[in-house]
Nucleic acid binder design. Structure first.
Length: 334
DNA sequence: TACGCGTGGCA
DNA sequence: TTGCCAAGCGT
C-alpha cells in the first residue's frame, strides 16, 4: 500500500489538506437538502434517518420525490411504525434495494418498542475520498485506509459539518469522472491532482460481470380488465414485492419449454408468446424475460397466493421496475 | 472477506 | 448503445 501524501504529525505542512479550507467552501456552497438542517437549526432525527436509508447507493435526485411522499404520509417514526409493511413496500416500489424498506419498517417498530419513539444517539459515519490521498489500495480493501486518513482530518469542532461537506464535495466537485478540480478547496493539497492522473483514483478492482439469466413471465388478462399478480417470497431478490407469475430465472432457461411454468388457471388458456424480450439489469446479473399473454374468462379464479388486480390499480402496487416493464410490454403501454 | 442486492442518469 | 456510477448494508 502506498499513500502518496502523509499527514503532518506536528509541523504544519503547506501541502496537506486543511479541514478549514473545506469548511469554508461548505459555508459558501452547501446544498439545500430537505433533510438537512439549516444553519442554527436542529435536524429532525426521523427525517435524517429516513433520508439515510433512502440515500444508500441512490442519488439525491432519485430519492427526493420518494422522500417527500414518505414524510407527507408518515410524518413521524410513530406513524411509520403503525403502518402496514405492504403500504411501505408500495410506496418504496421503484426505488430499489427493497430490503431497505423492510428494514426501515422493522426499525421504526423497534424504535417505538425499545426506545419509546425516540431515536437513540448514534455514531455518525464518515466517508472520505480516496482520491485526495492517492491511495493505491484498491476498493473495497482500501476502505480501512481511507477511514484512518479521514479520521486524521476530522476537526475538533464542526465534525458534523465536515462530514456533510465531504459529501457535498463528492456530489458536486470531486466526482469520479471529470472532477472540477479548479473549484476544489483542496486542489492545492490533493495528491492525485498533483500526480496528474486524478481520474485513476480511487483504484478499483475490476467488477465481475454477472452472466445472463432468462425466464418467462405470464400476463393473464381477465375479461373484466384485471391482471393476475402474486407476491414474491419474503427473502432473496425483490423480496415481498409483487410480480406476475413466471418461471425461475436461470442461465439454462429453455424458452421452448417455458409454458410448463405457466400458472394453472383452469380451462386451457391460450398463451400467446410476444415478440421480443424484456431486458432488465440487476446489480449482479442481466435478465431477459419472454412474455406470454392470455385472455381468460371473467369467472377465472386466482390460484392460491395470487389475486386479480384492476389495470387501473397497477400504479399503486409494489411492482419493481422489471415487472412494470413486463406489464408495459404485454399491455403495449410503451 | 465476498457476495447479494435495484434503479436512473449520464458520458 | 453500453458501461459506469451513486450518502452502503446485511449476511
Amino acid at each position: 500500500m502506498t499513500v502518496a501524501v502523509r499527514l503532518p504529525r506536528r509541523k504544519k505542512d503547506a501541502s496537506a489538506p486543511e479541514p478549514a479550507d473545506l469548511l469554508a467552501w461548505y459555508d459558501r456552497h452547501r446544498r439545500i437538502l430537505p433533510w438537512r438542517a439549516r444553519r442554527g437549526e436542529r435536524a429532525d432525527p426521523y427525517a435524517v434517518w429516513l433520508s439515510e436509508i433512502m440515500l444508500q447507493q441512490t442519488t439525491v435526485k432519485t430519492v427526493a420525490p420518494y422522500y417527500a411522499r414518505f414524510l407527507a404520509r408518515w410524518p413521524s417514526v410513530a406513524a411509520l411504525a403503525a403502518s402496514d409493511l405492504d403500504d411501505v413496500l408500495r410506496a418504496w416500489a421503484g426505488l430499489g434495494y427493497y430490503a431497505r424498506a423492510r428494514n426501515l419498517h422493522a426499525c421504526a417498530r423497534a424504535v417505538m418498542q425499545r426506545h419509546g419513539g425516540i431515536f437513540p444517539r448514534g455514531m455518525d459515519a464518515l466517508r472520505a475520498l480516496a482520491r485526495l490521498f492517492a491511495v493505491e489500495e484498491k476498493l473495497p480493501a482500501a476502505k480501512p485506509v481511507i477511514k484512518r486518513l479521514a479520521t486524521s482530518l476530522l476537526p475538533p469542532r464542526r465534525a458534523g459539518d465536515f462530514a456533510q461537506a465531504l459529501m457535498d464535495l463528492g456530489a458536486t466537485l470531486c466526482s469520479p469522472k471529470n472532477p472540477a478540480c479548479a473549484l476544489c478547496p483542496w486542489n492545492e493539497s490533493c495528491a492525485a491532482a498533483r500526480r496528474g492522473d486524478r481520474e485513476s483514483f480511487p483504484r478499483k478492482t475490476p467488477k465481475r460481470e454477472g452472466s445472463l439469466r432468462r425466464g418467462a413471465a405470464f400476463v393473464a388478462l381477465r375479461a373484466d380488465g384485471r391482471v393476475l399478480l402474486r407476491q414474491r417470497p419474503d427473502k432473496g431478490l425483490l423480496a415481498s414485492m409483487t410480480e406476475v407469475p413466471g418461471s425461475a430465472w436461470a442461465h439454462d432457461f429453455d424458452s421452448a419449454s417455458a409454458l410448463a411454468a405457466a400458472p394453472r388457471l383452469g380451462g386451457t388458456p391460450k398463451w400467446q408468446k410476444l415478440a421480443g424480450v424484456v431486458r432488465h439489469v440487476f446489480t449482479h446479473f442481466p435478465l431477459e424475460l419472454t412474455v406470454f399473454v392470455a385472455q381468460v374468462p371473467r369467472v377465472t379464479k386466482a390460484l392460491k397466493g395470487a389475486r386479480w388486480v384492476r389495470l387501473a390499480d397497477l400504479p399503486g402496487e409494489a411492482l419493481p421496475n422489471v415487472m412494470r416493464k413486463v406489464l408495459a410490454h404485454a399491455l403495449k403501454l410503451d
